[in-house]
């Protein structure tokens, strides 16, 4: 594969890392999307303000990208509606039970060499890959 195919992934990853670094350096908080989002669904507390601000920035990102590039990037979702609803529910419930997702465990947790995050990331990557294997190569959907 050519270098050009890798560059967006590397640059995008660097921006994600920069975001997490900026947040922890300036405010002392962890950029974990599931924790930020899930906590906002509970009673308000001292962290509600920055969490709302972070999510507002995140939700403005599509607008910024469309303004800068003039086009919507590819978003191809093949799963049927019922499966999407089930998947979304599992992602919401699972990330909160497991205390983090791809950002909180996968990026921030591994960046600080947390044993919990290393285990969590290994497990969700493995179960995601196993799920794709079953759907594509066992069921053959």
């Amino acid at each position: 594969m050519e270098l050009a195919a890798f560059l967006p992934a590397l640059a995008g990853g660097a921006l994600i890392g920069l975001s997490a670094a900026l947040l922890v350096l300036a405010t002392g908080r962890v950029a974990g999307i599931s924790g930020i989002t899930g906590s906002l669904l509970g009673p308000p507390d001292d962290d509600t303000g920055w969490r709302l601000a972070f999510l507002t920035g995140l939700l403005l990102a599509p607008l910024a990208v469309v303004a800068l590039t003039g086009r919507i990037p590819p978003v191809t979702i093949a799963a049927p509606t019922g499966l999407l609803a089930l998947a979304g529910f599992l992602v919401g419930l699972g990330t909160r039970i497991g205390s983090g997702c791809t950002s909180g465990h996968g990026v921030c947790g591994i960046a600080r060499l947390s044993p919990r995050s290393l285990v969590a990331t290994g497990l969700f990557m493995a179960s995601a890959a196993a799920t794709v294997y079953v759907i594509r190569h066992v069921i053959g959907a």
Binding site: A87, L90, T95, A126, S127, A128, T131, V132
Partner: peptide, 9 residues
Amino acid sequence: LFGVGWGLA
């Protein structure tokens, strides 16, 4: 659980 949901969608 999270991984299963991630892999489905």
